[in-house]
Computed example of a mutant assay.
Amino acid sequence: MTKIEAIIFDLGGVLIDWNPEYVFLDAFNGDREKMQWFLNNICTMNWNENQDAGYPLVKATNDLVKQFPEYENYIKMYYGNWEQMLGGAIEGSVKILKHLIDNRAYKVVALTNWSSETFPIAKKQFDFLKWFEGIVVSGEEKTRKPYKEIFNITLNRFKIKPETSIFIDDNLKNIQTANSLNINTIHFKNPKQLASELKNYNIYL
Rank of each mutant, 00 (worst) to 15 (best):
C43F: 00
F38G: 02
T44G: 09
L39D: 03
F24K: 03
N48A: 14
E33V: 04
R32S: 08
K66L: 12
Y22I: 13
Y79C: 02
D63W: 05
E72D: 11
P20C: 09
Q51H: 06
N29W: 09
R32Y: 12
N48D: 15
D63F: 08
Y79K: 04
G54W: 04
L57G: 06
M45G: 08
N40R: 09
V65N: 05
N50M: 09
E70Y: 07
N73V: 07
V65A: 01
K34Q: 14
G30K: 05
K66A: 08
G80W: 06
Y74K: 06
N46Q: 10
F68Y: 14
P20Q: 05
N40F: 11
Y71T: 09
D52M: 03
D31G: 13
Q67S: 10
Q36M: 11
P56S: 09
N29C: 11
P69Q: 01
D52H: 01
E21I: 00
Y79V: 06
K66Y: 04
F68A: 07
N73E: 14
G80V: 00
N19W: 03
V65D: 05
G30R: 08
Q36E: 15
F68T: 06
D26L: 14
D52L: 02
F24W: 09
W37R: 09
L25N: 12
N41L: 00
D52E: 06
K66D: 14
Y74N: 11
N41C: 00
T61R: 07
P69C: 01
K34F: 02
V65E: 07
L57C: 05
Y74D: 15
N41H: 11
P56I: 01
N41K: 05
V23F: 14
A53C: 07
A60T: 06
Y78F: 14
E49R: 10
Y74L: 10
D26Y: 12
M45F: 13
N46W: 08
F38T: 11
K76I: 06
N50L: 08
C43L: 12
P20K: 02
N62G: 01
M77V: 05
L64A: 02
Y55F: 11
P20F: 03
A60D: 10
F28Y: 04
L25C: 04
D31N: 15
L57D: 03
G80E: 12
P69H: 00
G54N: 00
V23E: 07
L64M: 12
P56D: 09
F28R: 01
K34M: 07
W37C: 01
M35R: 14
E33S: 12
R32L: 07
F38Q: 04
E21S: 07
N41Q: 10
Y55K: 07
T44S: 06
I75V: 02
R32C: 01
P69S: 00
G54T: 05
N19E: 07
I75S: 01
N40M: 13
T44E: 06
